[in-house]
Amino acid sequence: MSGYRIELLTVGSEFFCPAEQPILKAMMQLGVKGIPSGCHGGGCGVCKIRVVEGQVRADSMSRAKISEAEERDNIYLACRALPLSPLTIEPLERLDRPLRKYGLI
C-alpha cells in the first residue's frame, strides 16, 4: 500500500498514512493520539493542524474554521487533508478541557 510517514510535532509520535486516506482517520485507526478528533467532515474545526513540512491535498473545509489566510499559511483540518509526501505536522487545537466549571462547559 502506498502511503507516507506522518510526524506529529509536540506529541512526538509518528504513524503511517495511506495515500488515499485523511491524516486524522489514519491516526485514529492506528490508535495514535495527538490530533483532536471531531466530526471528520471538515465542519467543526477541532482537528486543525499546521503542515510544517511536506505537501497535502485537502477536500472541502469549512471557511468558518479555516480562513483563506490560514490556508495560505499551510493550516488545514486533518480530517480533510490527504498526504502527497511524508509530512511533519503540528496539532493546533486541544479537545480536552482542563477546567470544566459547569459540568458541560
Binding site: 466530526c39 477541532v46 469549512s62 479537545l95 480536552d96 478541557r97
Partner: peptide, 11 residues
C-alpha cells in the same frame, strides 16, 4: 461519564 466531543464538537 463525560464524552469530550459531545460538548466541543459542533457546527
Amino acid at each position: 461519564e463525560a464524552h469530550d466531543s459531545f460538548t466541543s464538537v459542533y457546527t
